[in-house]
Amino acid sequence: MSDETNDMEQENQKFELNFILNSLNSEKVELNIGETLFKEGESNDYVFFILEGSIKVLKSKWVIGITYPLEFVGITSCLSETSNYTFSSKALERSIVLKIRKMDFKNLLMKNSTFCKQIIEILCARIKLTDFKTKNYIENTSKQRLLFEILLNSKKDLDGQYFTNLLPEDFSELTGLSIRNIKKQLNELQIKNLIEINTTGVITLLEKEKMESILREKR
C-alpha cells in the first residue's frame, strides 16, 4: 500500500473513531510537555484517545512505547480484571486527549460492532509491534536498537521528509542505553550522513532506506 493511501485510510479511520467517541460524554483534556496523564497504581477509571501530540507509556522508569494520534492509552488496564493502571503515562509534547469513562468505553464495545472491529485492529497492531520490539532487543546491536526506535518514531513532514522530535533522553528511556551512548551513536549516524540534527534537536532522516537496511543486517 502506498504512503498516500495509507495516510488517507488513517484519516478516514480517525474521523470515524472521533465521530463514535464524540457520541459519548467524553471530555477533552490538554496536557503540557511532561505532564502526567495517570500513574501506575491509580484507579483505572478512564481510557484515553489521543487527538494531538504524543504520550509515552512507562512501566517504572522504562518506556514501553510512545503513542500517537488515533491511538488509545489505558485499554489493557481497563479491560483487565485489575482496578488500577499497570503503567504510567506522560505527555511527550503538548497533547490533547479524549478522556472516556471506562464503563462508557465497555458499553460501546458491546453495542457497536464497527468500534469493536477498530479496537481489535488497534490491539492486533500493538501486539505485533511489541513482539517486534522484543525481537529487536534480543537480536540487535545497540546501534540497531537506536535505529529501530528512530525509524519507528519518525513521521513525515509536508515535504515528505521523515523526522523525529525525540531527544537523546527519550531514546535512552526507549532503548535502555545510556544518554552518553545515545549521543555517541547519533553523532556517528550524523557523520555517515544518515541523519541530520538541527539546533533544536530535531532529527531528520536523510537516508531512510539505508537505515532500514542496516537494521536488517545480522549482528
Binding site: T76, T86, F87, L123, I127, T130, D131
Partner: peptide, 8 residues
C-alpha cells in the same frame, strides 16, 4: 488485551 499485556 491479555496478549498485549503479556507481550509488554
Amino acid at each position: 488485551s491479555k496478549d498485549l499485556k503479556g507481550a509488554e
